[in-house]
Nucleic acid binder design. Structure first.
Lengths: 199, 199
DNA sequence: CCTACCGATCGGTAGG
DNA sequence: CCTACCGATCGGTAGG
């Protein structure tokens, strides 16, 4: 039963290397070397190098979408939905910084149909944000007149985190999540005082 | 005198291909093919594939830094400096979307010492923003208590543009620059009414 | 899990 | 600017 964990170890080693050197900049020999194996042995656990990339990227985009949907389903207040959704967005890019960075920079290395599928998944995630912001504006809880651009702006703000965040750095996960939530609420023109609808 | 423009054409073709497929995903044969040449002919105009990447990335980071410094030098008002600096930041990522995206995603493909040099240039650019925000807060014109994170947030907001902006898309360069300026002013907690200090 | 090995492709050079 | 070509490395297979 060395099988299932071995496959996971390979995917983790590939994630680190794709993060550091990119997909085309990483060889199967290098992935194997991280696990003290030879390249041909990898093929007992996977079909191709490309499949590794597909698994990493599709897994990441599917995960953040699910996290967002779960988090926003826990309340009916639209600003609270926004707050919880954005906290999930920010924390995801801290906790899965490597996967997120790969998902962002290596889409071009995906072959079809995976590339189109990932782009579609990303469009859907953006659409969830756009709708949430539109609802906030419709209910008079946010004031931006560019829901489209506001969605891009706050999503990209969070994505950027994956590029510079270090778990052992000076700023904690909680501090960053809180501060960025305030930033995002400012962008959409919402009151950023905590959980206003509950007091 | 086919020389100087040929070198530029090669750099432009390389920029498009690195943008679409990444540095390691692009071959010298493909770059040559875009210009109806054979790969060996390229070496009459350049030293190596790596030099192409260094030129593109260092050129881009040097350019945005110079644009920022020029724009912020045209006024003494700190919020107006911020506004003009950010407009330059946003417009740069629209006009040089391909170069900017490469500069962001292909740093790992840079060999030393170029990689360290680019990272240092980027640190310097971030530092300019941090200082500007700190000055705005010190003068009572902005209210954020996280100048560090605010700098990251607005920089990343602008960088994200390079990933999705299309010159022929539905949103014009001017509209996007204006809307994003308001977003950025909100993030640092500054009044976003236009040019307040002048009226 | 390994060694041995394959055809393809890479960046780059020689020589004209 | 080209053709001819080099050694190195790639993803992946055969066979055990």
């Amino acid at each position: 039963m060395t099988e299932p964990s071995r496959a996971r170890e390979i995917r983790e080693a590939a994630t680190e290397l794709f993060y550091e050197r990119g997909y085309h900049g990483t060889s199967m020999r290098e992935i194997a070397a991280r696990l003290n194996m030879r390249a041909p042995s990898l093929y007992n656990h996977l079909n191709s190098k490309q499949q590794l990339l597909v698994d990493i990227i599709e897994g990441d985009v599917a995960l953040i979408t699910r996290e967002f949907e779960d988090a926003t389903a826990t309340t009916d207040d639209v600003i609270e939905k926004f707050r919880r959704g954005f906290e999930v967005h920010v924390r995801h890019h801290m906790r899965y910084a490597h996967e997120s960075k790969i998902a962002m920079t290596e889409v071009a290395a995906l072959e079809e149909p995976a590339q189109s599928q990932v782009k579609e998944m990303r469009r859907h995630y953006t659409e969830l944000w756009r709708t949430l912001i539109e609802n906030a504006v419709a209910e008079g809880r946010a004031s931006t007149q560019s829901t489209n651009l506001a969605a891009y702006a706050i999503i990209d703000m969070g994505i950027g985190i994956a590029r510079w965040f270090r778990p052992d750095g000076p700023v904690s996960e909680g501090t960053l999540a809180g501060t960025y939530c305030d930033f995002a609420l400012s962008v959409i023109g919402a009151d950023s005082s905590p959980t206003r609808s509950r007091t």
